[in-house]
Nucleic acid binder design. Structure first.
Length: 456
DNA sequence: TCGTTCACGC
DNA sequence: GACGTACGTGAACGAA
C-alpha cells in the first residue's frame, strides 16, 4: 500500500509529465475549422428560419412579447404553463425540464428541429470555437490539472480535451476532423479496458467479479436474465443491442450506486421512448425474434413498466446479494470504516475526508485510484519517450486513456513499450493491483485526423 | 458576477 | 421499506 509521501510524489512527477504533454500539443486544421464554422452557421440559420415558420413557434410568440428560443426558462414556461403540458421530468429545483430527454417525451415534431439547432450550436460554440481560439500557430495545447477534483482525478481546460464528442457520429466527425498529428505521423490511443471495474475488484477482492473480468461476460449474463432471452447469440444484432442496453442501463449505473427504478426506466427506453401511460403495445420497440421487443416482454408477463420494474428489482437483489456478495460486504465494511474514522484512504496513498454519503465513499477511491494508474503510466511513458529519444510523444490524456502522436517508424516499438508499462510494469510497482490490466490500442492512419479510422 | 440549465466526456 | 448513479468543463441565460 502507498503512503502519503508516495501520493505526493505521484502528483509531483505527474504534473511535470503533464507539462510535457501540454508543451507537445496537437496539430489542428485552422482552415477546416473556419470553413466548418461557416457551414454550420448556414445550417443553423436555415433551421432557425424553418422553426420560426412553425405554428408551434407562432403560438409561443402569441403568449409572450419577446421569445428567445434558446432560453430554457422561456421554453419551460411556454410548454408547462401556457400549454399546460404534463411534466415527465423535473429539474433539480422542481421545474419542468427542457433537456433532450424531456423534449423527446413530449413528441412535438417542431422540437426536434430545435434540438438539432442546439446540437449544431454546441459543436460550433463549445468545440470548434475554442479550438480556434486556443491554438497557437496551428498547435493546440490543452491544459491539465491535478489539484481540482475531490476524487483526485485530473481535469483539463482551455480547451477541455476530455469531453470532445465521441458517441454521436456527426458531432464526433466534425470535431475530431479538426485534430491531427504532426506531418507524417499518426495518432494512437491506449485505452485501459474496464479500468474502474478492475480497480473496484482490487478494493473488494470479490472473486466472482475478478473471474467475470478475466474470462466472463457480466453484461451478457445479466442481459439474459433481464430480458429472459433463451439461446443468447452475441452475433445477432438484437441480442447485442440488448446487451449494450444492459451494460449502459443497468450494470454501470448499478456500480455507480443507481437503483432498480431508474434502471427499469433506462431499460424500458430501449426503443427510444418511454411507452405512454407506462404500458407498451405489441409492435413497439426494436425487432426481436420475428416480432418486436414489446411482444416478447408481454409474452413473458411484463405488460407494464410497473411489472417490469418489479422484475428489475429482483435482478438487482440477485446481482448484489448473490452474484457479487463479497463486493456488497466490502461496501458495508468500507462505509463503516469511514463513519468510525471520518476519512478513508486510497490504495494510492491519498486521504479522502469531508462529508460524504455512501455512494461517495465507495466511488471516490475507485475513481481516484483508477486515474492514478493512468497517471503513473503517463509518467513512465514520458520517461521512455525522453530516454529513448523518440520522435513519438504523448499529446493527451482522458482519465483512462493516453493519446500519442506517433512516428510510423516507431509504431511497433511504442506500442510494445506502452503496453508493457500499462499492463506489466505498473503491477511490479503497485502490488495492490491484484487483477490483470489490459489495454485497447486504436491506431489512426498516417496524416489522418482523430476522426479517421484505419482501413483494414 | 453568480446560480441554473443544458450537453459533452469517462 | 424508501431512497438514490460518480467526477469534471463550458456555453448561454437571467437575476442580482
Amino acid at each position: 500500500m502507498q503512503t502519503a509521501t508516495d501520493a505526493y510524489k505521484l502528483l509531483h512527477d505527474g504534473i511535470q509529465a503533464l507539462a510535457k504533454v501540454e508543451q507537445a500539443g496537437l496539430r489542428i486544421d485552422v482552415e477546416y475549422i473556419k470553413n466548418k464554422k461557416k457551414e454550420i452557421t448556414r445550417e443553423i440559420n436555415a433551421l432557425e428560419k424553418q422553426f420560426l415558420k412553425t405554428t408551434f413557434f407562432k403560438d409561443w410568440l402569441k403568449s409572450s412579447k419577446e421569445v428567445n428560443i434558446y432560453s430554457p426558462t422561456q421554453l419551460g414556461k411556454f410548454l408547462y404553463t401556457t400549454k399546460n403540458l404534463k411534466v415527465f421530468k423535473q429539474t433539480v429545483t422542481g421545474k419542468g425540464a427542457t433537456d433532450e430527454e424531456a423534449l423527446r417525451q413530449l413528441r412535438i415534431p417542431e422540437l426536434d428541429t430545435l434540438l438539432q439547432i442546439k446540437k449544431l450550436k454546441k459543436i460550433r460554440d463549445t468545440y470548434l470555437e475554442s479550438f480556434e481560439r486556443e491554438q497557437v500557430n496551428g498547435t493546440l495545447h490543452p491544459f491539465y490539472q491535478l489539484h481540482l477534483v475531490k476524487t483526485f482525478r485530473g481535469s483539463s481546460d482551455s480547451p477541455n480535451f476530455q469531453n470532445i464528442p465521441k458517441r454521436d457520429k456527426e458531432a464526433m466527425d466534425i470535431c475530431r476532423k479538426a485534430i491531427y498529428p504532426r506531418p507524417g505521423n499518426q495518432l494512437v490511443e491506449f485505452d485501459y479496458k474496464q479500468l474502474e471495474v478492475r480497480i473496484a475488484a482490487c478494493y473488494n477482492g470479490d472473486q466472482k467479479l475478478i473471474d467475470d473480468i478475466v474470462s466472463g461476460d457480466m453484461h451478457r449474463d445479466v442481459c439474459i436474465e433481464l430480458f429472459k432471452i433463451e439461446n443468447f447469440n452475441k452475433e445477432e444484432l438484437t441480442h447485442s443491442t440488448l446487451r449494450s442496453a444492459t451494460k449502459n442501463g443497468f450494470v454501470f449505473p448499478q456500480f455507480y450506486g443507481s437503483y432498480y427504478k431508474n434502471c427499469a426506466i433506462n431499460l424500458a427506453c430501449t426503443w427510444g421512448q418511454l411507452p405512454k401511460n407506462g404500458r407498451w403495445k405489441k409492435g413497439q420497440g426494436i425487432p426481436f425474434e420475428d416480432t418486436y421487443l414489446a411482444n416478447h416482454l408481454i409474452e413473458k408477463g411484463f405488460t407494464s413498466l410497473d411489472k417490469f420494474t418489479e422484475h428489475v428489482r429482483d435482478i438487482e437483489k440477485d446481482f448484489w446479494e448473490v452474484r457479487y456478495g463479497v463486493y456488497t460486504k466490502w461496501k458495508r465494511d468500507w462505509w463503516q470504516l469511514y463513519q468510525q474514522k471520518g476519512y478513508i484512504e486510497t490504495k494510492t496513498g491519498f486521504r479522502l475526508q469531508g462529508v460524504m454519503n455512501q455512494n461517495d465513499v465507495i466511488n471516490y477511491p475507485i475513481q481516484g485510484s483508477a486515474f492514478h494508474c493512468l497517471l503513473w503510466s503517463l509518467i513512465e511513458g514520458v520517461k521512455a519517450q525522453t530516454k529513448e529519444h523518440w520522435d513519438s510523444r504523448i499529446v493527451g490524456q482522458i482519465h483512462d486513456s493516453i493519446i500519442m502522436d506517433v512516428n510510423p517508424r516507431e509504431l511497433k516499438k511504442v506500442i510494445k513499450v506502452m503496453r508493457c508499462i500499462m499492463c506489466n510494469d505498473i503491477r511490479q510497482k503497485w502490488e495492490w493491483i491484484t487483477v490483470p490490466l489490459d489495454v485497447d490500442v486504436e491506431i489512426h492512419p498516417v496524416d489522418g485526423s482523430w476522426a479517421d479510422k484505419l482501413k483494414n
